[in-house]
Design a protein around this nucleic acid. Structure first.
Lengths: 220, 220
DNA sequence: CCGCATAAAAATATCGATATTTATTGACAT
DNA sequence: ATGTCAATAAATATCGATATTTTTATGCGG
C-alpha cells in the first residue's frame, strides 16, 4: 500500500510532520509563549502517537522554540522584551560577520543567486509566500560565507525574530517605512561588493525593524 | 521504594542519564565523529528502552554533537579541520563580545565569582576535575554579559572545541606553553576592568590553542 | 564478470499500554 | 481563614511489541 511517494508535499515521517506543524504553530503564535505543551493534547491535535511528538519537541529545543524541563514536560519558549533585544543584538553581530565574509568571497555564481532571490521576493510582495522568499533572500546574502554553523545561528535567530513580529502584530502588520527600498539598498551594495555599505544598510534595516517592534510590544 | 532522593549524584530520568552519558562519550571520542549511533546497540549499552535514547539523541542535536537524518537514524557529528576552524572563529567573535559586555557591566559580585573560579581552577591543575573547573572559569568570564543566548552559544562552542582537543590528543595531552600564565593574564585584565587587554589575552589564548590543535589534527 | 531485480536481514519509527511523577483537591486540625 | 497531609486525578516518562523503511545479501540473465 505505497502512499504514492509524493516527492512534492511529502511528510516522510510522523516526527517530521509534527516538527513542522509545531514549529509553525509556535512561530505564528498559535502556541503562545510559555504555554504548556501537553503530549495528550498535541496527540489529539496531530493525530499521532506520543513518541513522534516527544521527539519533535525535543528537536525544537535546538531552535530555542521549546523548553524542556525534566520530569515536567515541554513548553513553548517564553518571550520578553529583553529576549527580543538579545536576539536583535546577536543577529546584528552575526549577520554582519556573515555578510562581510560573503561579500569578501563573492563569486558570480553567488551574485546570480542573490539577483534571483531578490527578484522573487519583490515579485511576491503581498503574497502569503512572501515570508519564505524574504527569508531566502536574507539567507542567500549570508550563504556565501561558507560557514554552516554561522548560517545555522543566523537562520535560528531569523526565525526567533519573526516570531516576535507575529507576536507584535496583533493584526496591524503594516509599517510606514519602505521595506522594499531597504532591501534594495542592501542588495545593491552586496552585488556591488561594497561590504561597508551593505553591512550598514543591513544593520539599519534591523535596527529600524527592532525599534518598530519594540514599541509594539507593550504586552509581555 | 523511594530511591533516597540523592540530590548529589542524581539521575532523575532515564532520558537525562542517557543524555549525559552520550554527550560525554561523544565529547571524549568514545563515539568517534561520523559514527552511526544505532538504537539497539545503545539500548544494550545503557540498559534502557529505546524511547529515552531517541529523546536524548534528539536533544543532543541542539548541541551539534549529533546529526539526525530522517528515516536513517542518528550519527555522531562529523569532524573536520574546516569545522574546527569555524568553531574557533565563531568562538573568538562571540566570546570577545560577551567578555567585553561582562566587563562593561562589572560588579563586585561578579569579580568575586571570577576570583573564586580562577582559584579553584588553579588548585585543580592536573586533577581529573580540572576540565570542569576550566570550563566554569571561562564561562564565568562571560556570565556577566547577562545574555543567556550568547552564553548558550559560547558554552556549546566550548564543548565542541574540547571535543577536538580530545580528538587531537591521541594521548599526548601536554603542550609546551604556559596555559596557567595565559589564564592569569585574562583573569588579571578582567578584574582590572581592562576590556581591551582581557579580550586580547583571551583571543590570543584561543589562537594559540587553535594553532596547536590544527597541527595535531593530521588525521580526519 | 557486471548490473539489476528480488529476497532476507537489520534498523528505524511508531504505537498502545503502564509505571512514575507531579499537580490538584478536599478534609481536618490549628 | 490557613496550612498540612493524604487521596485522587492528570501528565510525564518509559517499556515492549510491531509496522515500515533501509540496507545487505542473493541469484539470474546479459
Amino acid at each position: 500500500m505505497n502512499m504514492m511517494d509524493d516527492t512534492g508535499g511529502r511528510e516522510t515521517s510522523a516526527t517530521r510532520a509534527a516538527y513542522l506543524s509545531l514549529r509553525k504553530m509556535i512561530l505564528v503564535g498559535d502556541l503562545p509563549p510559555g504555554q504548556k505543551l501537553k503530549i495528550e493534547q498535541l496527540r489529539a491535535m496531530l493525530k499521532m502517537g506520543a513518541s513522534p511528538i516527544r521527539e519533535a519537541l525535543s528537536l525544537l529545543t535546538s531552535d530555542m522554540l521549546v523548553e524542556r524541563i525534566d520530569q515536567r514536560g515541554f513548553r513553548a519558549a517564553p518571550a520578553s522584551i529583553a529576549n527580543f533585544e538579545e536576539i536583535l543584538t546577536l543577529r546584528s553581530a552575526l549577520e554582519d560577520m556573515a555578510l562581510r565574509q560573503s561579500i569578501a568571497q563573492a563569486t558570480s555564481e553567488w551574485e546570480e543567486l542573490l539577483v534571483l532571490s531578490h527578484h522573487k521576493m519583490k515579485r511576491l510582495a503581498g503574497a502569503d509566500t512572501f515570508e519564505d522568499a524574504h527569508k531566502t533572500f536574507h539567507m542567500t546574502l549570508l550563504r556565501n560565507a561558507e560557514s554552516p554553523m554561522l548560517e545555522r545561528y543566523c537562520s535560528q535567530l531569523y526565525d526567533l525574530n519573526i516570531r516576535y513580529r507575529y507576536l507584535a502584530a496583533g493584526g496591524a502588520g503594516y509599517q510606514s517605512r519602505d521595506i522594499a527600498a531597504e532591501h534594495e539598498d542592501i542588495f545593491d551594495a552586496a552585488v556591488r561588493g561594497d561590504a561597508e555599505s551593505a553591512s550598514a544598510a543591513l544593520l539599519s534595516h534591523y535596527r529600524l525593524t527592532g525599534e518598530y517592534l519594540t514599541t509594539q510590544l507593550g504586552a509581555l
